[in-house]
Design a protein around this nucleic acid. Sequence first.
DNA 1: TGAACTGTTATTGTATACAAAACGCCTACG
DNA 2: CGTAGGCGTTTTGTATACAATAACAGTTCA
Lengths: 223, 223
Amino acid sequence: MSRASDQAYAKIRAHLLSGAVKAGEQLTEDQLAQITGVSRTPVREAVRRLEDELLLVRSESKRLFVADWSRNDIEEMFALRQMLECHAAERAAHRLTQAQVAELEAVNHALRAAIEQPVPDVARFLEANRRFHEAIIDAAHSPRLGQLLARLVEAPVVLRTARNYSLEDLRQSARDHDELIAAFAARDPEWARAVMGSHLRRAFHTFANTVGPATGDEEAEAA
Amino acid sequence: MSRASDQAYAKIRAHLLSGAVKAGEQLTEDQLAQITGVSRTPVREAVRRLEDELLLVRSESKRLFVADWSRNDIEEMFALRQMLECHAAERAAHRLTQAQVAELEAVNHALRAAIEQPVPDVARFLEANRRFHEAIIDAAHSPRLGQLLARLVEAPVVLRTARNYSLEDLRQSARDHDELIAAFAARDPEWARAVMGSHLRRAFHTFANTVGPATGDEEAEAA
DNA sequence: TGAACTGTTATTGTATACAAAACGCCTACG
DNA sequence: CGTAGGCGTTTTGTATACAATAACAGTTCA
């Protein structure tokens, strides 16, 4: 990838993640150019990507703001992700080679290693988790599916970094992964889909409970 | 929207649609700047959007080409669209107001008017069809769902313009829409989902049969 | 007081020039 | 012959200056 715009992308993303800016706050391309150390041209490129991922949004008049994900936004995102990723799991169950299944086992082993130590390494857990799901999506052999999921998956992980996963949550994820691997090894698409569904739905509740309660009317915002 | 980049987007799209360029052909930003009459900066913006819609693709080394949709690509796209749009229909069935249902009826009436004349007006049919599906997606009140679908739906419509829809195909679409409206009026999400599923699946076969037979191995390309 | 207008400032959009990278051809060398 | 390497050309990437547009504040007029 191109040098400056990727750098800008990574730095802006890190900047959002760092908590230095609040949701809803306005940003300008100039500010971001200063922060990233490149000119506005690659910044604009990076900003477009972040808009795609819904980390940044533009007002009607094209001014730039940090996205503010409501509980309902998160629910919606997880619902879509579940639909697409269950599909991916099903397709992957048809297609995964033994070598790829072994790779999944290795990744989940690394994931466990990140958990099972005096102080669980959440960053390493998240990275292994990302690789696990990515491998499944790749094995689904559906490039557009991968493209659609890419923009759904990253956003919430970045936005709410201060979540405290309990050790039990992390372990349950690893067990879910084990069962997914079993479904893949058995070449059972229905099983894989079902496990992926419950895995993501649980993840949603774990995640959402750290954000706040749902609003009474699911459509309050959309209207 | 911004003036020059939107203009560039529309012109490039029309240029691709016109058949003046073949699938797989290389384009350069300079060429497109000349064609559109604006500088490369807004052209690059437009190209990014067209890349998102998969009408244009870039080689590993960032050179620009007209996308070449294989039969398998089209299958994949329709499968995803079906998954998402069935979900949209289900949600819409929960949420559509009577006024919105009436609006759908009006749009489908216009769709029929475009068909039922000495020479069916396919362009008007496609436009009415687009509005019909768009209204359902809007009523689903899921902004991200709409965003994801937007980039799936347009591409194939543009790429293969020389299709010849039979009058019977067009009429069947109108009948499907009628049944969807009935499902919405009955507030029956399951019914709406099922009708949308068969509607899109039939559309897929109608569409795909004008492209060519499927390859023996679905994964031939992905690999 | 308040509502519309106008000049000022802040911000995004576009053009252009230049830098970097990739392709293709051609030559030199094994 | 075949292949590796170098050089001119093509193409994309980046910086910068300027243009257009939107927000803001201050002022005037009813």
